[in-house]
Design a protein around this nucleic acid. Sequence first.
DNA 1: ACATCATATTTGAACGTTCATATTATTGTA
DNA 2: TACAATAATATGAACGTTCAAATATGATGT
Lengths: 344, 344
Amino acid sequence: MAKATLVSLAESLGVSRQTISNVINAPHRVKPETRLRVQSAIEQSGYRPSAAGRQLRTRRSMNLGIRMMPVVDGINGSILDRFLHALTEAAQQDGYRLTLFCADSDADEIGQYEELLNVADLDGFVLTGTHYGDDRTAWLLDNDVPFAAFGRPWSSIEDPFTSRHAWVDVDGGAGTEQATRLLIEQGHTSIGFLGWPVGSGAGDDRRAGWRRAMHHARLATKGLDIQADDGVAAGALGAERLVEAGATAVVCASDSLALGAAAKLRQLLPEQKTPVVIGFDDTPVAAAVGLSSVAQPIEDAARHIIAVLTHHLSGGRDGGDKPRKHLLLEPTLTQRTPYSFSSI
Amino acid sequence: MAKATLVSLAESLGVSRQTISNVINAPHRVKPETRLRVQSAIEQSGYRPSAAGRQLRTRRSMNLGIRMMPVVDGINGSILDRFLHALTEAAQQDGYRLTLFCADSDADEIGQYEELLNVADLDGFVLTGTHYGDDRTAWLLDNDVPFAAFGRPWSSIEDPFTSRHAWVDVDGGAGTEQATRLLIEQGHTSIGFLGWPVGSGAGDDRRAGWRRAMHHARLATKGLDIQADDGVAAGALGAERLVEAGATAVVCASDSLALGAAAKLRQLLPEQKTPVVIGFDDTPVAAAVGLSSVAQPIEDAARHIIAVLTHHLSGGRDGGDKPRKHLLLEPTLTQRTPYSFSSI
DNA sequence: ACATCATATTTGAACGTTCATATTATTGTA
DNA sequence: TACAATAATATGAACGTTCAAATATGATGT
């Protein structure tokens, strides 16, 4: 039999298109009796409203866009996998779908927004990798495009909690602070920080957490703050300099750096038994080699992003509580004992 | 100014809707003169045909679906990231978009197919993780849904190259064979294989490659074939048994297994200098610890999957050469010297 | 019994595109 | 020049939905 449509269903039921449409979109307008009759007919016929018809009329597609960032390290790819999965699942639960797109640059990404809004009527976007002077958020705000960002708006002047747009982020600083405190409790007094060059929001935030913990414990930080590009080799190099400066433990801005640092410390300070390097992101690499690492609640972040976005898109009429527009999640420290480096 | 549509453009140009539609979809039908005139008007106005209007009429959405598999290991997540990125990029180039969806099981996935075909008019699907007795391919074939699989159809009776559906796969057996040969060349005569329990297509294929190389070199395999569930710990355990059986080198079905095996071999056979463990997938974990690994050309695979799918969807009228319906790609062996395990 | 009002349902139109067909312009041929 | 054949363009209808407005139904009060 042919696919059911509003018209075909209406005819077979002896009601009008609009009544069925109302049963689906505004049930309260329909008399309970007919509503039930229609609902069972819908179920029985397997009728599902056509996205195209809807979209044409309402100019909404129930599709959310997200950019696939160019694969750089690969080490964080697993995080993306988890993030995407959680986003997709949450979106699906709310009746939305996720559409992927590629862009070479932020400018290109904005071009894609225009294109996707224009041709595909995307309802909103999920942003990742926010940074200082992000053009994208400005453009989206200017054009009244709904979106939520994973990553707070980095700005030296504005308070992110007063931002005009929704965001969810993980408090990286709290993570490194916690990590540093753990090392202090373990008796370390000279703890280095191995992070990215100053200028990246997330990187500086993580550095600040380490610095807070050190200051709080009245420990010196001089010479213990190393800036290095991400990567295992750079991590080893940085660790070498830290050991020269007297460090006995290292907190890192990434698992890549931490992996290099761990190997180097193992070599330079073989007498130490406890884990003295703590990474960030709790990637499979960290799990594989038994490296302690700051774990981001990335699934929670994804769910909240979808919640805040869909809540906004439904105009707040989705029944659920209004999700917070700005949310800073606490990371947790995954503690491990070195694995591959010691005996198994 | 309001968004351009076929009608608004037609009016301002003094031609009919259909002429503009033809310029876009069947340029040869339009007189070169008008064609140019219309084309420049399209560019100047920034007109882009509405997906919804098109979809409603043609019942095609220019959207391809792909399932987000549940995150299991995480170690392979980076592979998925690369795969998704390449898929998205290739699809975008051909004018298609990628839609993500989640499913708990194969049966659920089939349910999603129905839903997505029905409501969103998805044009086709990309399948991953094919296995013995895969219901999904059967369903898609039965329902004439275009799709291409990453992973050959595993069957003990049928030749995959006569399969009714398109697929792209990486010749894992060739990879492990190559890896084993390398170890033989290096003088090893007792090389173990550390793989998954018999029954998974890809796993058995990789095991077969090792076996081929061993037989070809007339080396014994008795006791050197270990079946273990995926994971670092299982890898270490398996390696222990292999060393007991006299193995001096190990070829693995995954980087997780390899990582465990490498650590164990380092411990049990510390005198060896050269890399004696070879992993599979060339994940960031392998790169991070300097583990040799069989690398899948996953971007090539993704591009070909899109090529074969879009070629089919366009009915072969897309100009390009007909891509092969069944394609087995050769992996390459990424050789590394142990990194974290030795000195840096 | 009748007007009033709220509730429930229906109708016509519109969203932007392409298909199938109809019309008009152009070319070739006798 | 006329006539057919073909190329180029135009028209009406349809895809399936929701919006806005119109109509029908029922309840309430006088």
